[in-house]
Design a binder for these strands. Structure first.
Length: 503
RNA sequence: UCCCCGAUAGCUCAAUUGGUAGAGCGAGCGGCUGUUAACCGCUAGGUUGUAGGUUCGAGCCCUACUCGGGGAGCCA
């Protein structure tokens, strides 16, 4: 089948007044006796197609009236601009051909639970929300490659089967490699360091696997991570690289996906403020903030606000319940019932936040210097800022063996996390790498790791060692942040969750 | 692994103190020439997650289990 006569919905603005043929799927339809509105999706967008009685044969008119959601179809007609239509253009249909009729499509235009949607992920991908997220993700990935390629970085594909651990042995997936135990990569960093000593600036980009038993909205067992690694760079240089990088990604998403971001309900005004420089805090400063009065005040104000919000929702529910009882028409009662369901869900979320608030306040107030920042601690700091925040100089003992110690204070390392604002939390983790042979050797053996396995890694410190470092950015977390999507499982086509793989 | 919540029609949810299981969407039929998750009328659709227990009577109370959601630890 040739593709020559086909027009895509995204191109309709160039065909106003002209006759075109669209190929796609029936997204939704409404009929009004002698006029039908078919919403067609073709992968590039949505288009409302108008079928008037008399402009097509009676047989076709009747066939279209009974066509099921997601049937595949080819429609021909004249393009015209109309503000009432999705996307601003519509098609006055003169002819149509049903390619594959569909009946009883499971995902209806009403709301569904997450379990049902994940079980139907192969179909859920067709929904508008998932489509918008997929488009944003595509832009993010394109921006990642473009940013590094334009800056002279060389792409290095690091292995997925790994013989050594980058971080923690316990969080690895083990595989049987012809009888030998290997594990799936959790970072390409160690290999990347060796490549950086050849090419200077390198990056790797691919799937990463973590066997962490984490059941939260921020975790997947398989996720995509990009990791740049640069020779001759210090911590300040890394921070600058990271903020320019994140800025470029947000700017590309705003340029290419504004309508998708709007549909998804992303905070576009906030994203437009993401210009560097970002905030910079040391770990010690972050701890002072967490344990300080300002945080307790911030949290108690937040709690008050949540309680006010709760009261508002409750009084609204009370009003609606009264209103519902007074209604005689069943459909009016049902409309109110639908609103009540939404309000009750909102109330549940608010309740959970009210319940968590004092726990988080207690955790923050009792935070001891030396521990790693917990999820709630990151959330608090993130909520207190309107731009991304770098947190640097973590305690050495809480961090991986390869991080370079601060020569002015050996208790901390030259690392950083980048927290996305408004409560989204960590999207980047990175560090300057230990470049001193003796210090690295001591840290490897000090962590009980087999030095033999790391001899090649130590070689990099033997033959022309240089200051170097890099970081890793999680793609799904970044997409979730940009789109205001709550759970990162929606930010990858086929998510792998702890204990659960649907298709 | 721990804590909290839930499971009722294909889907999303109601069901007052323990007293005859309902609605919307979706499906089918009909009506309507500008609809925006269209609207209006009619029809079909149920072993209330599983196994026990209390009771004259259990969707509702009790116990165990299964599955799911949210959160914690850990992390991108």
């Amino acid at each position: 089948m040739t593709n020559n006569n086909k027009t895509y919905i995204s191109e309709l603005k160039d065909y106003v007044g002209k006759e075109v043929t669209l190929s796609g799927w029936l997204y939704n339809s409404r009929s009004s006796g002698k006029i039908q509105f078919l919403i067609i999706r073709d992968g590039t967008g949505l288009c409302q197609c108008i079928v008037e009685k008399g402009s097509v044969s009676d047989e076709l008119f009747d066939e279209l009236r009974h066509l099921g959601q997601e049937s595949s179809i080819r429609v021909s007609g004249t393009v015209r601009a109309d503000e009432r239509s999705v996307g601003g253009y519509e098609l006055a249909v003169t002819d149509a051909e049903v390619i594959g009729a569909a009946t009883d499509y499971p995902i209806t235009p009403k709301s569904h639970g997450i379990d049902f949607l994940l079980k139907n992920r192969h179909l859920h991908l067709r929904s508008r929300r998932q489509w918008c997220i997929g488009k944003v993700r595509h832009t993010v990935i394109d921006a990642i490659r473009r940013f590094f390629n334009d800056k002279g970085f060389v792409l290095i594909d690091t292995p997925i089967f790994m013989s050594m651990a980058g971080e923690d042995e316990q969080t690895l997936f083990e595989v049987d490699y012809f009888g030998e135990p290997l594990h799936l990569t959790q970072t390409g960093q160690l290999h990347l360091e060796s490549a950086a000593m050849s090419f200077g600036k390198v990056y790797c980009f691919g799937p990463t696997f973590r066997a962490e038993k984490s059941k939260t909205r921020r975790h997947l067992t398989e996720f995509w991570m990009v990791e740049p690694e640069v020779a001759f760079i210090d911590l300040d240089g890394l921070l600058e690289l990271a903020e320019n990088f994140v800025y470029f990604i947000t700017e590309q998403a705003l340029t290419n996906n504004r309508s998708e971001l709007e549909y998804l309900g992303a905070d576009i005004a906030a994203l437009e403020k993401m210009k560097p420089p970002f905030y910079r805090l040391t770990y010690t400063e972050a701890v002072e903030i967490l344990t300080g009065e300002k945080t307790q005040k911030f949290l108690s104000e937040q709690l008050e606000q949540l309680q006010r919000q709760k009261q508002q929702i409750e009084s609204r529910i009370g009003e609606l319940e009264k209103k519902q009882a007074g209604q005689r028409k069943q459909w009016q009662k049902d409309k109110i019932a639908a609103e009540l369901i939404e309000l009750r869900a909102e109330l549940g979320e608010t309740d959970a936040r009210i319940e968590n608030n004092p726990k988080h306040a207690k955790l923050a107030a009792g935070f001891q210097w030396g521990k790693d920042l917990g999820g709630s601690d990151e959330t608090i700091i993130s909520q207190m800022h309107d731009k991304p925040i770098f947190v640097t100089h973590y305690p050495k003992d809480a961090k991986a063996f390869y991080m370079k110690t601060d020569r002015g204070n050996e208790k901390v390392v030259l690392n950083f996390d980048l927290l996305a604002p408004a409560g989204f939390g960590e999207i980047i983790g990175g560090s300057v790498r230990e470049d001193d042979y003796e210090k690295l050797l001591k840290r490897i053996s000090g962590q009980g790791l087999d030095v033999e396995n790391y001899s090649w890694y130590l070689d990099l410190r033997k033959y022309g060692s240089v200051p170097h470092g890099g970081f890793g950015l999680g793609v799904e977390r970044t997409v979730a942040w940009l789109t205001s999507e709550k759970h990162i499982r929606q930010c990858i086509a086929f998510p792998r969750l702890m204990d659960k793989v649907y298709i």
